[in-house]
Write a protein that binds this DNA or RNA. Sequence first.
DNA 1: ATCTTATTGTGATTAGAGGCACATGCGTGC
DNA 2: GCACGCATGTGCCTCTAATCACAATAAGAT
Lengths: 209, 209
Amino acid sequence: MKFLKIPAATITRLSLYTRALETLIKEQVTVVSSKRLAELCGVNPAQIRKDLAYFGQFGVRGVGYYVKELLFDVKKILGLHREWKLAIVGVGNLGCALVAHENFTRQGYRFVAAFDADPMKIGRKLVTGLVINPPNEMHNICRDKQVEMGVICTPADFAQDIANRLVDAGVKAILNFAPTQIQAPDGVKVENVDFSVKLDNLAYYLTTG
Amino acid sequence: MKFLKIPAATITRLSLYTRALETLIKEQVTVVSSKRLAELCGVNPAQIRKDLAYFGQFGVRGVGYYVKELLFDVKKILGLHREWKLAIVGVGNLGCALVAHENFTRQGYRFVAAFDADPMKIGRKLVTGLVINPPNEMHNICRDKQVEMGVICTPADFAQDIANRLVDAGVKAILNFAPTQIQAPDGVKVENVDFSVKLDNLAYYLTTG
DNA sequence: ATCTTATTGTGATTAGAGGCACATGCGTGC
DNA sequence: GCACGCATGTGCCTCTAATCACAATAAGAT
Ligand SMILES: NC(=O)c1ccc[n+]([C@@H]2O[C@H](COP(=O)([O-])OP(=O)(O)OC[C@H]3O[C@@H](n4cnc5c(N)ncnc54)[C@H](O)[C@@H]3O)[C@@H](O)[C@H]2O)c1
Ligand SMILES: NC(=O)c1ccc[n+]([C@@H]2O[C@H](COP(=O)([O-])OP(=O)(O)OC[C@H]3O[C@@H](n4cnc5c(N)ncnc54)[C@H](O)[C@@H]3O)[C@@H](O)[C@H]2O)c1
């Protein structure tokens, strides 16, 4: 089981499952069937069972899944049982919103470094107390603070350069908000968050049906 | 051709192609091969040709695609040849960043209405001059201003309620930033933008490889 | 202890998307 | 005006992912 290649879509769904499970916990639900969970997540029940089957057996036949246990297990699979250290590059409108967002902290994502090229911003403190540093210190600071993930919130033109610096600083995972395709060497994972693409999808839908 | 079912992934890629084509125009490139475009977008050349083939023939054999023409055609396919009217609900950190974002305007997405439940915010003007209205005026204002897409930037607990109101106001497309699954009737398209899911993907990658 | 009921885990099946490879056809040069 | 080179458009194949359907099995009732 462990050695099968796991679809990327499965990982994405696992993330969704953790959310649904967290709301179930809030609602004091202790046991959930794949059917019910599937409804909450908008997927097929068999899909859930199969997704989980990649990693082992977590349910009880005839009963379902114990919510708290399953949440624990899925979080562990995803690597959410520990804290992750992030750096943000580009503390503009979007960057500030991200740093301020307290859900991330709750989930174990912590911003431990911030960078911006704007001389007016360097040295200033964010609401969280984080000091903004110049980009040329990225290498040293990221290594010092053991940054594991980099978040790019600069204009698109600089994104590739920033990515290179992050990689150079030993960062192996990048979340890119700039609307551009970033090249990274093997062993470095890049995820893009792209609002306009989503809007374009909606535009297409409204245009064509 | 026109009547085949078109994969969602194709639409997403078309959006990527428009970006690459726009940068090519900036670089004064007039003709591009599927091979070159594929490199820029990080996809397979045949994929590009196939994606375009769903909608017609746009290239010249032995030559490639005329950049400007192709951009025009792809934009038209996506419905980006016109302006779209958006409403934002929840003008917090993220909501403000979105409204302030000038790329959207450049692409033809225009925020024509803003809503927030916070009494301190109602009546205030955003940087764009847009006035913040209370949620109970959503129905009338959206209809008045002919809002076509709704953007949800409220905390997750309120997202479904907001979505219902938007649907009620005739909005047929919703971009949801709240980390929750939204139910909408047939004929209404919901797209989710979910940062934490992307972070979770990175966490999984760093944990498992 | 056995039967019933519910729901998992999974092999088989179906659907679909991506990639290959070649025939098609346009432009250029001779 | 003809031949050659080059990149498109597309049929076919492969591979992957999603769904179905059922056998395995746990809990509770009789
Ligand atoms: N704001 C949005 O809603 C939104 C939506 C979609 C995409 N994006 C993308 O996210 C990115 C940031 O958007 P924003 O609205 O925050 O823009 P912004 O202009 O408010 O902020 C950009 C920040 O990056 C900094 N910066 C510029 N060059 C830099 C460099 N080389 N190194 C470090 N920092 C640098 C600037 O000083 C500024 O603080 C852009 O690529 C934008 O296209 C934003
Ligand atoms: N900020 C981020 O980086 C980030 C990242 C991921 C997800 N999100 C999600 O985006 C959403 C907004 O995030 P944010 O950081 O802007 O939060 P925020 O708290 O800064 O803003 C939320 C806004 O919504 C308003 N609001 C609350 N209830 C409302 C209602 N019923 N009707 C209308 N408005 C209402 C609030 O008054 C506030 O202005 C949240 O769901 C959050 O989880 C944000």
